[in-house]
Design a protein around this nucleic acid. Structure first.
Lengths: 156, 156
DNA sequence: CCTAAAGTCCGTAGTGGCTCCGGAGTCAAG
DNA sequence: CTTGACTCCGGAGCCACTACGGACTTTAGG
């Protein structure tokens, strides 16, 4: 099948397929006489695996590991399990970080509830966060600033 | 104060400060005779504002809006409030997306609980997700594939 | 058979928010 | 005077794509 068909069958964007090939996540596709890529059912399966992994939030690197583990049929389950559990823990950590963020932001917004007052509570909170329930008033954050999680376009 | 001092005072990485200047989030700093940047207290305040906004998950673009709003002292509170609420909704959406992910992943891991069996449940689930409680079996995802949230290094 | 539209090829650049690098200049302490 | 710490600057790298442009091929309609 042609690339657009493989894209439709796998739910993976056409250009993304080429990207995966470029970075070596997919091996180079066979070519027809005209130079067009030609995909087999097995390759579409692999693509599905990848997109599914992405949907579960695995990085491409993790997916590559999973694919490698999937290919050795013997005794790989424990490794897969470990990887999945680590990844789950990572996701849960991110959820907690976002929840803290949301809580703090909600508190800040609440302070502003009145509306048009002289000094905006949100802005002054951004300038100097009020210390209501502030357990982490660390003056020197030893881990350095965190990446501060912002995804450009998660439609979710 | 010099850039390293401004960095320490604001909790913002030194190179990040230069980066913010480069992209115009900070105006160009004054220079000493030797060419070193020289920061005032007000600029450190602005930096704090930015880092605080990042901690709350605002994008740099949003922060720029907030800063602009903060500078017009009159009647800006409603806009700020709206921005903050939109951002909160966005964060909550991301939390939900991650929670769905975590749930599905947890289910998948559970299926593997036994350990070393012939076919790994996690891997087969990645290949063809079991349809236990699958409300979104859309064959044609109209929104295109979603970005599949993965932050490289959120230490959380 | 001819034309126009759609599909495919390729390499490159752009996204966000930094972070790190190398080479050069500056400054303070010993 | 040397050593080390600090600062300067521009550019590259990170992740996972997405978009673009120009050349080519295929397909459908007339």
């Amino acid at each position: 099948m042609k690339i657009s068909e493989a894209a439709a069958a796998s739910g993976c964007h056409l250009e993304t397929i080429r990207y995966y090939e470029r970075i070596g996540l997919l091996s180079k596709a066979a070519r027809r006489d005209n130079g067009y890529r030609d995909y087999t059912h097995a390759e579409v399966e692999r693509l599905r695996f990848i997109t599914r992994g992405r949907d579960l939030g695995f990085s491409l690197e993790e997916i590559q590991s999973l694919l490698a583990l999937a290919e050795q049929t013997d005794m790989s389950c424990a490794d897969v399990d470990r990887l999945a559990r680590e990844h789950l823990a990572d996701i849960q950590g991110r959820i907690q970080a976002l929840q803290r963020m949301a809580q703090e932001l909600a508190r800040t917004i609440e302070g502003c509830a009145g509306g048009a007052r002289a000094r905006c509570a949100i802005l002054s909170d951004l300038q100097a966060p009020a210390d209501r329930a502030a357990p982490n008033a660390t003056p020197a954050p030893k881990g350095g600033r965190r990446p501060a999680v912002h995804r450009p376009g998660i439609d979710a």
